[in-house]
Amino acid sequence: MRFTVTDDDTAAALGSGSLPVLATPRLLAWCEAATCAALEDELRDGETSVGTRVQLEHLAASPVGAELEVTAEVAYADGRLRRFTVTARHVDGKVVGSGEVTRVVVDAERFLGRLRPAPDQGAD
């Protein structure tokens, strides 16, 4: 996936620092987006994936206007679990970030159903 750093993507804008450079939380979001895109064709109707673990090194600064390419490759797969190697590079090839993102494939409705409060059983 390709992204261009905007003012809204900076550490100053996201509250993760005071400089006008790519914020680590935005880099992480882009890496997760790449893993979702990599899994998209494997998902059946009603399925989605959820992130469960992240390890990310932010190795270089990226100013506003910088173009980045973010890739995700499956490093490990076991049943519903997928572990991806992620890499973010400036378009000139300089590595900006790298790490691993683990996702688990889930049934979206069942997953969300677990978050809803149980119906009121009435007063005692």
Score class of each variant (00 low, 15 high):
Glu100Gly: 02
Val101Ser: 07
Arg89Cys: 04
Gln55His: 14
Phe111Met: 14
Leu28Lys: 02
Pro119Leu: 06
Gly15Tyr: 05
Ser18Lys: 14
Leu56His: 02
Gly17Cys: 06
Ala75Thr: 15
Ala34Trp: 00
Gly46Ala: 15
Gly51His: 09
Asp92Met: 03
Val91Gln: 05
Ala23Lys: 13
Arg103Gln: 09
Glu73Asn: 08
Arg89Glu: 09
Gly15Thr: 13
Arg116Thr: 06
Val50Phe: 12
Thr35Asp: 12
Val91Ala: 05
Val70Arg: 00
Leu39Glu: 12
Phe3Ser: 01
Arg2Gln: 12
Val70Asp: 03
Val104Ala: 11
Glu69Leu: 04
Phe111Glu: 08
Thr6His: 03
Thr71Ile: 01
Ala66Trp: 03
Asp78Val: 14
Leu68Asp: 11
Asp124Ile: 11
Gly17Tyr: 07
Ala118Glu: 13
Leu59Ile: 08
Ser18Ala: 15
Gln121Glu: 09
Val91His: 11
Ala60Leu: 03
Leu56Asn: 05
Thr85Lys: 01
Leu39Val: 07
Asp78Arg: 13
Asp124Val: 14
Thr24Met: 10
Val64Ser: 13
Val101Met: 10
Pro119Cys: 09
Glu67Ala: 14
Tyr76Leu: 11
Ser62Lys: 08
Leu115Gln: 11
Leu59Tyr: 08
Arg89Trp: 05
Gly97Ser: 00
Ser49Glu: 02
Val96Leu: 01
Ala77Ser: 08
Val70Lys: 04
Leu27Gln: 11
Ala66Phe: 03
Asp124Lys: 10
Leu14Lys: 08
Thr24Trp: 01
Gly99Tyr: 02
Pro117Arg: 03
Ser49His: 06
Ala11Val: 04
Pro20Trp: 06
Leu115Ile: 04
Leu19Gln: 06
Thr10Ile: 12
Leu68Cys: 02
His58Asn: 02
Glu32Tyr: 01
Leu112Asn: 15
Lys94Val: 13
Thr102Val: 15
Ala88Ser: 00
Thr102Ile: 14
Val64Asp: 11
Glu42Asn: 13
Thr35Trp: 13
Leu43Tyr: 13
Glu57Lys: 12
